[in-house]
Amino acid sequence: MSDNKFSVTVRVWRQAGPGGKGRMESYKVPDVSPDMSFLEMLDVLNEDLVRRDESPIAFDSDCREGICGCCGLVVNGDVHGPDEHSTVCQLHMRRFRDGDVITVEPWRVKSFPVLKDLVADRSSLDRIMAAGGYISVNTGAAPDANAIPVDKDDAEEAMDAAACIGCGACVAACPNGSAMLFTGAKISQLALLPQGKPEKARRALAMVEAMDAEGFGNCANEYECEAVCPKDVKVANIARMNREFLLGNFLSKR
């Protein structure tokens, strides 16, 4: 085991509950190993806080392998931290130096109200999904695999869109707080496949209207979302959503 431990100071957003006023607080974290993930560093800090009878810092995490979309923090002004196309659980302390002061903030988006400390409520994204992010299938025996031919390129593109983990980084990074990369990916993953095509017009109309109702901002095509997306979801999906929505509006019977 290497003994190259160092210490950092984290400045964390502390907020007692929903709607409350919060403030930044500083904590010193000694004995940080460069092999720790960023969240493990927060775990260590929390253990220390509990030992001192202080309230631990609330933050979201689940899989801690970059595939669930739970964690999401703004670290030193970078959404999901300084690594490109990464989640904050995949950020490691080796990215920092002894004596660094690290600013940690939650997503500060109107449609993601902060519940406590670093935990933001992203259920507005779930409500967009509930509006049409699915296909209607009769229950019964599973259909034969490969019964419906799918073009390989379309399948790949649908998979790339489906890689979206719904972490909300696109919204947190957007200058306007727009959720169009998320909604675009969710519309695209189905619109590209034959199973999703029958409902594509109604899906695009309903999901965009649900997105607007949640109070997200508008897309100005600045592509900050694409730059931070941990799954590298492309803005071509936003164009596809625009296309599906406009065609659905002007050409479908709805």
Binding site: V74, D78, T103, E105, V171, C174, P175, G217
Partner: peptide, 20 residues
């Protein structure tokens, strides 16, 4: 609308290379 809905209150914020 953007002005009302834009993320606000970040103590520190760095643009990620999308904007021109």
């Amino acid at each position: 609308e953007d002005w009302r809905n834009a993320p606000s209150g970040y103590e520190e914020r760095r643009w990620q290379g999308g904007r021109t």
